[in-house]
Amino acid sequence: MTSDLIESSLMPGQLLARGVSRHLRSHDFVSVEELVPSQGLRVDVMGLGPKGEIWIVECKSSRVDFQSDRKWQGYLEWCDRFFWAVDSDFPTELLPDDTGLILADAYDAEIIRVGPETRLAPARRRVMVQKFARHAAIRAQTARDPGFVHIY
């Protein structure tokens, strides 16, 4: 598949997530997309920093997308910092001031506002790092062997 075909098959939020992940890498964070911290929640991007920091980034592609999100506050207990990622046309005045803000596109991003830090308890951090590692390993294995069926 050419890059143009891949790009056209991605949803707007997935394109934002790609730009966010690229930007996080420039800050020495590694990231995974669509991680499930607990039943009923699925974060768009989770970043793991060089000192074990855990950031969650929710990508919103429109006003309707943001206004229909009823679960975002449930993500706060699973990270050290929480960010919204939106494109330059998004009405940022809708976003809570006490959260981080990232302006992104499909290719890169810029952190506009860093939200407050709420350090995870060590036991919660250990759980999240394990979930991150397993999620990343499953994604890597699936990329290497797409015909393999795995059970979560």
Rank of each mutant, 00 (worst) to 15 (best):
M1N: 11
T2I: 02
D4C: 02
S8P: 02
S9V: 00
P12G: 08
Q14R: 09
L15P: 08
R18C: 09
G19R: 01
S21V: 03
S21I: 00
S26K: 09
H27Q: 14
V30Q: 09
V32K: 01
E34Y: 12
L35I: 14
V36Q: 12
V36F: 00
V36C: 10
D44A: 07
V45H: 04
G47M: 05
G49R: 02
G49F: 07
K51E: 13
K51Y: 13
I54A: 01
W55S: 00
V57R: 03
V57N: 03
V57M: 03
C59E: 09
C59M: 02
R63K: 15
V64A: 13
S68I: 08
R70H: 13
W72F: 06
G74L: 02
G74K: 03
Y75M: 03
F82E: 00
F82M: 04
D87H: 14
S88Y: 00
S88E: 12
S88V: 11
D89T: 15
F90K: 10
T92V: 15
T92P: 06
E93D: 14
E93F: 05
L94V: 09
L94N: 09
L95C: 08
P96T: 05
G100V: 01
I102C: 04
I102P: 05
A104G: 07
A104E: 09
A104V: 12
D105N: 15
A106I: 05
Y107S: 15
I111M: 09
I111T: 12
I111C: 09
I112P: 03
I112M: 11
I112S: 05
R113W: 03
V114M: 08
V114P: 00
V114L: 08
T118G: 06
R119T: 11
R125H: 08
R125I: 04
V127S: 07
V129F: 09
K131I: 10
A133E: 14
H135K: 05
H135T: 14
A136F: 14
A136C: 07
D145Y: 10
P146M: 06
G147W: 15
F148E: 15
H150R: 11
Y152P: 14
